[in-house]
Design a protein around this nucleic acid. Sequence first.
DNA 1: TATTGTTATACTCTATAACTATA
DNA 2: TATAGTTATAGAGTATAACAATA
Lengths: 168, 168
Amino acid sequence: MSTQVDIQELAQVAPKGCLPKELVSNTAFLLARVGVAIKLAAADELEKLGCGLYDYGVLATLGEGTQETQAAVADALGLDRSMLVGILDSLEENGLVERKRDPNDRRRHTVSITTKGKRRLVELREVTSEIEQTFLEPLDERTRKQLHEALLRIACAYDPRYVVGAGK
Amino acid sequence: MSTQVDIQELAQVAPKGCLPKELVSNTAFLLARVGVAIKLAAADELEKLGCGLYDYGVLATLGEGTQETQAAVADALGLDRSMLVGILDSLEENGLVERKRDPNDRRRHTVSITTKGKRRLVELREVTSEIEQTFLEPLDERTRKQLHEALLRIACAYDPRYVVGAGK
DNA sequence: TATTGTTATACTCTATAACTATA
DNA sequence: TATAGTTATAGAGTATAACAATA
């Protein structure tokens, strides 16, 4: 039957373990797939160093900011405040972070990065840079910049927390 | 108290809920964030139609390919074969897909998309296109093409299943 | 013995809600 | 009453392993 033939011809064009063209041609699909792959890769690499996925983000936030309150850190990263507790617990256990009660409002904790935490931040920065390099390897410098700018625009459009970072 | 003042001044430079520049300047970080956001948005939209996240992918695979075996579909999409069972169960219950034993190898199931499934595929295609449009809205046509090409290169570099789709 | 599809299990991640201590 | 941090609970999602039928 002719149907059979058509189907087999198609099978040659689209080899067995191959994603449907329809999906691959959808930029949002690619974005989701690549994004999730990067997240998983990052989680793996960070775990090798005994770190959770968000440790780097938290340390980076504390490294740039002033003494922050837990709520401020959570909001900055888009994490629920309850999630931050466990992350800070482990960071504090490892001496990377300090929690102090705010004397002006004893409900609050002032969180700050320690010297040891800053050293760890440098390490994590290197690891995450390597992950970035690995994934961007197939792109030339110019294309990387275009990609970064496009992503930043997309991110800013649905989440204003990205906006300020655009400066540098 | 001066402490109070300092904090408020800083809050203007780096507004409260603002991501650290270090993270925003990392393309891999942006990629992961945007990618996950898209995945979540897609899951939401598809759920409104009573669909799981992978229903579209499975239907699209069946829509393009020949009669496929379950293993082939799973491999094409990068899903575990055990995960596909539940997905196909619900698709079959809704009459979107048919499973038949392969008479030549009775271990195998030949999966095919039904007429109703094809109609549903058209709907899901529209929904996912809308999601794509929403996220890409801040980009002009040229930038969108650059973005797509860059993502495709990245994806191909770590997963050969994307390669063939590059054609169109 | 190896493979296909299936089922069962367990584990990670995260979202939600309840709780405390302060305000 | 409301808020910051904490704790506890529950749910989604998925990875793993065991299983039955067939090769």
